[in-house]
Computed example of a mutant assay.
Amino acid sequence: MKKFETLEEEKKRRILEASLFEFAEEGYEKASTNNIVKEAGIGKGMLFYYFKNKKQLYHYLVEYSLRTIQEQYFSRIDTDEPDFIERMKKVTRLKWEVYLENLAVFQFSSTLFLSDMSGLPERLLSQYKKLQEDGFALLYKDIDLTLFRKDVSRDKLFHIIQYFLGGYEERLKNELKGQSVQAIDFEKYVKEFFEYLDVLKVTFYEEERT
Protein backbone atom coordinates (compact mmCIF):
# COMPACT_ATOMS: atom_id res chain seq x y z
CA MET A 1 0.00 0.00 0.00
CA LYS A 2 3.02 2.28 0.31
CA LYS A 3 3.17 2.27 -3.50
CA PHE A 4 -0.41 3.53 -3.59
CA GLU A 5 0.39 6.35 -1.17
CA THR A 6 3.10 7.67 -3.48
CA LEU A 7 0.77 7.95 -6.48
CA GLU A 8 -0.01 11.32 -8.00
CA GLU A 9 -3.06 12.81 -6.27
CA GLU A 10 -5.39 12.74 -9.28
CA LYS A 11 -4.81 9.05 -9.98
CA LYS A 12 -5.15 8.21 -6.30
CA ARG A 13 -8.41 10.14 -6.13
CA ARG A 14 -9.86 8.24 -9.10
CA ILE A 15 -9.03 4.86 -7.57
CA LEU A 16 -10.36 5.84 -4.16
CA GLU A 17 -13.63 7.26 -5.47
CA ALA A 18 -14.25 4.31 -7.80
CA SER A 19 -13.57 1.86 -4.96
CA LEU A 20 -15.61 3.72 -2.35
CA PHE A 21 -18.66 4.05 -4.62
CA GLU A 22 -18.48 0.41 -5.74
CA PHE A 23 -18.36 -0.97 -2.19
CA ALA A 24 -21.04 1.51 -1.08
CA GLU A 25 -23.44 0.47 -3.83
CA GLU A 26 -22.77 -3.27 -3.93
CA GLY A 27 -21.47 -4.20 -0.49
CA TYR A 28 -18.27 -6.16 0.10
CA GLU A 29 -19.37 -9.51 -1.34
CA LYS A 30 -20.84 -8.20 -4.60
CA ALA A 31 -18.35 -5.38 -5.19
CA SER A 32 -16.47 -5.94 -8.44
CA THR A 33 -12.82 -5.03 -8.89
CA ASN A 34 -13.53 -5.09 -12.65
CA ASN A 35 -15.97 -2.21 -12.16
CA ILE A 36 -13.46 -0.38 -9.99
CA VAL A 37 -10.62 -0.49 -12.50
CA LYS A 38 -13.00 0.44 -15.33
CA GLU A 39 -14.25 3.53 -13.46
CA ALA A 40 -10.76 4.46 -12.29
CA GLY A 41 -9.28 4.04 -15.77
CA ILE A 42 -6.48 1.68 -14.75
CA GLY A 43 -5.53 -1.92 -15.50
CA LYS A 44 -6.63 -4.64 -13.07
CA GLY A 45 -3.03 -5.68 -12.57
CA MET A 46 -2.22 -2.20 -11.33
CA LEU A 47 -4.95 -2.34 -8.67
CA PHE A 48 -3.48 -5.54 -7.28
CA TYR A 49 -0.02 -4.04 -7.54
CA TYR A 50 -1.15 -1.44 -5.01
CA PHE A 51 -3.33 -3.76 -2.93
CA LYS A 52 -2.69 -7.46 -2.42
CA ASN A 53 -6.35 -8.43 -2.72
CA LYS A 54 -9.92 -7.17 -2.45
CA LYS A 55 -9.96 -7.49 1.34
CA GLN A 56 -6.83 -5.38 1.76
CA LEU A 57 -8.37 -2.70 -0.47
CA TYR A 58 -11.58 -2.75 1.58
CA HIS A 59 -9.69 -2.44 4.87
CA TYR A 60 -7.72 0.47 3.43
CA LEU A 61 -10.97 2.21 2.49
CA VAL A 62 -12.37 1.70 5.99
CA GLU A 63 -9.29 3.25 7.58
CA TYR A 64 -9.20 6.06 5.03
CA SER A 65 -12.88 6.88 5.64
CA LEU A 66 -12.54 6.90 9.42
CA ARG A 67 -9.53 9.19 9.16
CA THR A 68 -11.30 11.53 6.73
CA ILE A 69 -14.37 11.84 8.99
CA GLN A 70 -12.13 12.63 11.94
CA GLU A 71 -10.02 15.20 10.08
CA GLN A 72 -12.65 16.83 7.88
CA TYR A 73 -15.71 16.66 10.15
CA PHE A 74 -15.09 16.07 13.85
CA SER A 75 -12.05 18.34 14.03
CA ARG A 76 -14.23 21.25 12.80
CA ILE A 77 -17.10 20.91 15.29
CA ASP A 78 -17.49 24.05 17.39
CA THR A 79 -17.64 23.01 21.06
CA ASP A 80 -17.71 26.61 22.25
CA GLU A 81 -21.47 26.74 21.61
CA PRO A 82 -23.07 25.85 25.01
CA ASP A 83 -26.65 25.60 23.70
CA PHE A 84 -27.19 21.98 22.61
CA ILE A 85 -29.85 22.76 19.99
CA GLU A 86 -27.79 25.57 18.48
CA ARG A 87 -24.74 23.32 18.43
CA MET A 88 -26.77 20.69 16.58
CA LYS A 89 -27.71 23.28 13.97
CA LYS A 90 -24.06 24.18 13.44
CA VAL A 91 -23.06 20.51 13.32
CA THR A 92 -25.78 19.83 10.73
CA ARG A 93 -24.57 22.64 8.49
CA LEU A 94 -21.01 21.40 8.83
CA LYS A 95 -22.00 17.80 8.13
CA TRP A 96 -23.70 18.71 4.85
CA GLU A 97 -20.70 20.78 3.79
CA VAL A 98 -18.27 17.96 4.53
CA TYR A 99 -20.65 15.42 2.94
CA LEU A 100 -20.65 17.32 -0.35
CA GLU A 101 -16.87 17.71 -0.21
CA ASN A 102 -16.35 13.99 0.50
CA LEU A 103 -19.37 12.32 -1.11
CA ALA A 104 -17.70 8.97 -1.82
CA VAL A 105 -16.38 8.67 1.74
CA PHE A 106 -19.73 9.43 3.36
CA GLN A 107 -21.68 7.07 1.11
CA PHE A 108 -19.20 4.29 1.84
CA SER A 109 -19.28 5.08 5.56
CA SER A 110 -23.08 5.03 5.67
CA THR A 111 -23.20 1.48 4.32
CA LEU A 112 -20.25 0.45 6.48
CA PHE A 113 -21.81 1.63 9.74
CA LEU A 114 -25.04 -0.22 8.93
CA SER A 115 -23.28 -3.47 8.06
CA ASP A 116 -21.92 -6.28 10.22
CA MET A 117 -18.47 -4.99 11.11
CA SER A 118 -17.45 -8.02 13.17
CA GLY A 119 -15.23 -9.30 10.36
CA LEU A 120 -12.97 -6.25 10.42
CA PRO A 121 -9.51 -6.44 12.03
CA GLU A 122 -9.39 -5.45 15.68
CA ARG A 123 -7.37 -2.31 14.92
CA LEU A 124 -10.15 -1.02 12.63
CA LEU A 125 -12.88 -1.91 15.12
CA SER A 126 -10.94 0.01 17.77
CA GLN A 127 -10.60 3.02 15.46
CA TYR A 128 -14.35 2.91 14.74
CA LYS A 129 -15.22 2.68 18.42
CA LYS A 130 -12.94 5.62 19.20
CA LEU A 131 -14.52 7.65 16.38
CA GLN A 132 -17.98 7.02 17.87
CA GLU A 133 -16.83 7.99 21.35
CA ASP A 134 -15.12 11.13 20.05
CA GLY A 135 -18.25 12.11 18.11
CA PHE A 136 -20.58 11.81 21.10
CA ALA A 137 -18.08 13.61 23.31
CA LEU A 138 -17.93 16.54 20.90
CA LEU A 139 -21.72 16.80 20.63
CA TYR A 140 -22.23 16.92 24.39
CA LYS A 141 -19.02 18.56 25.59
CA ASP A 142 -19.63 21.56 27.91
CA ILE A 143 -23.36 21.72 27.14
CA ASP A 144 -25.21 24.17 29.40
CA LEU A 145 -27.67 21.87 31.20
CA THR A 146 -29.34 24.81 32.95
CA LEU A 147 -31.06 25.60 29.65
CA PHE A 148 -33.16 22.45 29.98
CA ARG A 149 -36.36 22.09 31.98
CA LYS A 150 -35.85 21.23 35.63
CA ASP A 151 -39.15 19.41 36.19
CA VAL A 152 -38.16 16.28 34.22
CA SER A 153 -35.10 14.03 34.05
CA ARG A 154 -32.45 15.62 31.86
CA ASP A 155 -31.02 12.19 31.07
CA LYS A 156 -34.39 11.17 29.65
CA LEU A 157 -34.62 14.40 27.70
CA PHE A 158 -31.27 13.68 26.08
CA HIS A 159 -32.40 10.13 25.29
CA ILE A 160 -35.56 11.42 23.62
CA ILE A 161 -33.51 13.86 21.57
CA GLN A 162 -31.12 11.05 20.59
CA TYR A 163 -34.04 8.83 19.56
CA PHE A 164 -35.38 11.65 17.40
CA LEU A 165 -32.01 12.28 15.76
CA GLY A 166 -31.54 8.59 14.97
CA GLY A 167 -35.06 8.22 13.58
CA TYR A 168 -34.83 11.36 11.49
CA GLU A 169 -31.49 10.30 9.99
CA GLU A 170 -32.91 6.88 9.10
CA ARG A 171 -35.95 8.47 7.44
CA LEU A 172 -33.69 10.77 5.47
CA LYS A 173 -31.51 7.90 4.26
CA ASN A 174 -34.55 5.99 2.99
CA GLU A 175 -36.02 9.08 1.34
CA LEU A 176 -32.82 10.07 -0.45
CA LYS A 177 -31.76 6.55 -1.43
CA GLY A 178 -31.10 6.32 -5.16
CA GLN A 179 -31.27 10.06 -5.78
CA SER A 180 -28.38 11.82 -7.48
CA VAL A 181 -26.61 14.37 -5.32
CA GLN A 182 -27.27 17.10 -7.89
CA ALA A 183 -31.03 16.53 -7.59
CA ILE A 184 -31.20 16.82 -3.80
CA ASP A 185 -32.39 20.12 -2.33
CA PHE A 186 -30.16 20.09 0.75
CA GLU A 187 -31.38 23.47 1.95
CA LYS A 188 -34.93 22.13 2.13
CA TYR A 189 -33.86 19.27 4.40
CA VAL A 190 -31.70 21.50 6.56
CA LYS A 191 -34.60 23.92 6.99
CA GLU A 192 -36.96 21.08 7.91
CA PHE A 193 -34.47 19.65 10.42
CA PHE A 194 -33.98 23.06 12.03
CA GLU A 195 -37.75 23.37 12.42
CA TYR A 196 -37.81 20.07 14.31
CA LEU A 197 -34.93 21.28 16.49
CA ASP A 198 -36.88 24.43 17.31
CA VAL A 199 -39.82 22.27 18.40
CA LEU A 200 -37.48 20.30 20.67
CA LYS A 201 -36.17 23.55 22.09
CA VAL A 202 -39.64 24.88 22.89
CA THR A 203 -40.60 21.53 24.42
CA PHE A 204 -37.53 20.78 26.51
CA TYR A 205 -35.98 24.15 27.41
CA GLU A 206 -36.94 26.41 30.25
CA GLU A 207 -39.61 28.77 28.97
CA GLU A 208 -37.68 31.93 29.72
CA ARG A 209 -34.68 30.61 27.71
CA THR A 210 -36.54 29.90 24.48
Rank of each mutant, 00 (worst) to 15 (best):
E9C: 06
R87V: 00
S75E: 15
K150Y: 14
Y163I: 14
R154E: 12
M46C: 08
Q107R: 15
F48H: 05
G41Y: 05
S118Q: 07
W96Y: 12
A18Q: 01
S118L: 06
E63N: 10
F194E: 14
Q127P: 04
L139V: 10
E133I: 10
L7C: 04
F74L: 14
E29V: 13
Y50L: 08
F108N: 04
R67L: 12
M1I: 10
A24P: 03
V105S: 00
G166W: 11
I143H: 03
F204D: 01
E8G: 10
Y58I: 03
Q56A: 14
A183K: 15
L20R: 00
V190Y: 10
E187A: 04
D155Q: 13
L165N: 09
Y60C: 01
V199K: 15
M46D: 05
E26R: 15
E169K: 10
G135A: 15
K38P: 01
T92Y: 09
Q70R: 15
E29G: 01
V152L: 11
D185L: 02
M1W: 09
E97Y: 03
R154Q: 15
S115E: 10
K38S: 12
S115W: 06
Y99K: 08
T33E: 01
L120E: 02
L100G: 03
L47P: 00
K89S: 04
E208G: 03
K11V: 07
G41V: 07
F23G: 01
Y64C: 08
K55D: 09
T111H: 09
M88L: 15
N53G: 08
I161L: 13
M88W: 05
F113A: 11
V98K: 00
G178F: 04
E26T: 12
E5P: 00
T79V: 13
K38C: 02
K201W: 05
Y205N: 05
G135K: 04
L138Q: 03
T146C: 05
M117Y: 10
E5Y: 10
S65H: 04
E26C: 12
R149H: 08
K30F: 13
K95D: 05
G135S: 15
F48M: 06
R76P: 02
D144L: 06
L61E: 00
K173P: 00
G45Q: 03
V181W: 07
K54Y: 09
R13W: 11
S118I: 04
D151G: 02
N102A: 04
E71F: 06
L147T: 03
K55M: 07
I85C: 02
L114W: 11
Q182P: 01
L139A: 07
R87H: 01
A31L: 07
L114V: 06
V181M: 10
Y128V: 07
N35S: 12
E25D: 12
A40L: 03
T111Q: 13
K156V: 11
D142A: 07
K177N: 09
S126T: 15
L112Q: 02
E29W: 09
V181F: 06
T79L: 04
M88Q: 14
D116M: 08
F158E: 03
K130G: 01
R149F: 05
F194I: 11
R87K: 13
L138V: 03
E206Y: 09
F21T: 09
G41R: 08
F108R: 02
